[in-house]
């Protein structure tokens, strides 16, 4: 219990540091935000007025706490670039895209890597294991913008299977939504498959040497049954850690894929806002992304106790 409290406290400190970091970072941006927003052929009075409105004349610390106060009320401010939308709603719609991409990609990655890891672990260093390991190793070395371009060349330009760019929300029909999400999702999944496969394979090989696996075999259980019902769950701890980290990292680090396929996700929001000097949006987005990381991490800790009964009883 005490350990849990310590963990929560640390996560709060992390959140605080992230917000402080992004806040001060974005206020270090070169140039004058007022100029960035209004363009550079306005009267000096117009700039001064805008600066006053944005609170840029206050000291940094004061601005930070004003901002933080608003954040706690769910108000991330307004975009500094016309049409000056509400940052919270900008982030909400971008977040929906990113989380869908990330979750779908992780599901695809799991669907591929779990069987792959099991096949590899059946006979460590066997032919299949070495083939799988060589393949995942190769995939691991392909950056997503390269694999994305190759997939586009193959599946879009040659086979015309998927649309080249664009996004259709779930609200406009699940079929169209998935059709547009497919290629980006595959591209992202390719990034995760090697790690998942390797982590799970390693743990499976170790678990399969445990006594309880031997005793399951002594009971006459077939190999596939032992793999799925005996070895998999105790071998999934590292996979879950990696899964959590991936989910947290993917919200936002799908920038490349979002750019490649022109998808309106968090990554693109941050990149385009950053290049316009749109501080409020960048701050808000980074804060939300970091909050996700912190929450997901806490979730992973919780997951452990669900899979491992030994922790469950101790923690309760």
């Amino acid at each position: 219990m005490k350990a849990a409290a310590g963990k929560v406290a640390q996560l709060l400190v992390v959140m605080f540091l992230v917000s402080l970091g992004t806040f001060s970072l974005t206020s270090l941006m070169p140039g004058d935000p007022a100029v960035a927003i209004l363009g550079d052929n306005q009267s000096p009075e117009a700039y001064a007025e805008l600066r006053e409105k944005l609170g840029l004349n206050e000291p940094l610390v004061e601005r930070y706490f004003t901002w933080l106060g608003h954040v706690f009320q769910g108000d991330l401010g307004t975009s500094m670039v016309p049409p000056n939308e509400d940052v919270t709603s900008l982030i909400r719609s971008a977040f929906a895209v990113s989380i869908e991409l990330a979750v779908l990609a992780l599901v695809v990655a799991l669907v591929v890597s779990i069987p792959l890891a099991m096949i590899s672990a059946r006979r460590p260093d066997g032919l299949l294991d070495r083939a799988a390991s060589a393949t995942t190793f190769g995939i691991m070395s392909v950056p997503s913008f390269v694999s994305g371009l190759v997939l586009i060349a193959l599946l879009v330009n040659q086979l015309h299977l998927f649309p080249r760019v664009g996004w259709v929300g779930v609200t406009d029909g699940l079929g169209q939504n998935l059709y547009h999400a497919a290629l980006p999702v595959i591209t992202i999944a390719l990034l995760e498959i090697p790690t998942f496969t390797r982590v799970l394979r390693g743990d499976l090989v170790r678990t399969l040497q445990e006594d309880f696996v031997l005793s399951a075999r002594a009971k006459g259980m077939p190999a596939w049954r032992i793999m799925i019902f005996d070895a998999f769950r105790p071998s999934s701890y590292s996979l879950i850690t990696v899964l959590g980290l991936s989910l947290a990292q993917l919200i936002g680090s799908t920038v490349i894929v979002e750019t490649l396929f022109s998808l309106p996700g968090m990554g693109r929001l941050v990149v385009s806002s950053a290049s316009q000097g749109n501080i409020t949006v960048v701050q808000g987005a980074v804060l939300v992304i970091a909050a996700c990381y912190v929450l997901i991490n806490a979730g992973v800790d919780l997951m452990y106790s669900v899979i491992d009964p030994r922790i469950r009883r101790v923690g309760a």
Binding site: E210, D211, F212, L214, S215, A216, A218, K219, D230, R233, P234, I307, D308, P309, R310
Partner: peptide, 16 residues
């Protein structure tokens, strides 16, 4: 034919 093992903890699956 059945078997029992030396270490009863490690020969039981901890999550079952």
């Amino acid at each position: 034919i059945a078997m029992i093992f030396q270490d009863p903890l490690s020969s039981l699956n901890p999550v079952k």
